[in-house]
């Protein structure tokens, strides 16, 4: 039940993010949308490791090992998500830095204005 809900939420986040990244004109909102896609992917991977009614995968000293392996959730996806969260934050920071530089040149946050000039230049080249 709760795994199904996790799946639904992650799909919703990815879809919302994709919509924003493709159709929204404002560049900062595009980037927010991209961060939602990343969060959706992370949530999905955490959902893989989750075991309904299980325990946190930390082996305490007084635990029986076979009981622990039967009940603990799968820790590998959690390790992956840790890395992925940090990667997401760093790409976000680089994109925002590029936006700040480009804002100084164009004075607007509209993607149509900011990123269209390269394609205009390409048309001119052709």
């Amino acid at each position: 039940m709760s795994q199904l809900a996790v799946l639904f939420t992650s799909v919703a986040l990815v879809v919302i993010g994709l919509y924003a990244a493709i159709f929204v004109d404002n560049i900062i909102k595009k980037i927010i949308g991209i961060s939602f896609i990343e969060e959706g992917a992370n949530l999905f991977i955490v959902g893989i490791g989750y075991k309904s009614g299980g325990i946190v995968p930390i082996l305490a000293p007084n635990m029986d090992v076979s009981w622990f392996t039967a009940n603990a959730s799968y820790p590998l996806p959690y390790g992956l998500v840790l890395t992925s969260i940090v990667i997401g934050a760093s790409t976000l920071a680089v994109m925002l830095a590029l936006v700040m530089v480009l804002y100084r040149r164009y004075g607007t946050l509209s993607t149509k204005v900011m990123l269209a000039d390269t394609s205009k230049q390409e048309e001119y080249d052709e």
């Binding site: 900062i28 992370n42 946190v56 998500v81 969260i85 997401g88 934050a89 976000l92 925002l96 700040m100």
Partner: peptide, 27 residues
């Protein structure tokens, strides 16, 4: 709640503090 306390800590710092602060700084 999904039994991943380590991920939760990282996400709390990154998702609830760093990302919005970065966006706010850009704004």
């Amino acid at each position: 709640i999904l039994l991943a306390p380590d991920v939760a800590l990282t996400q709390a710092i990154v998702g609830a503090a760093i990302v919005p602060v970065f966006i706010a700084l850009t704004v």
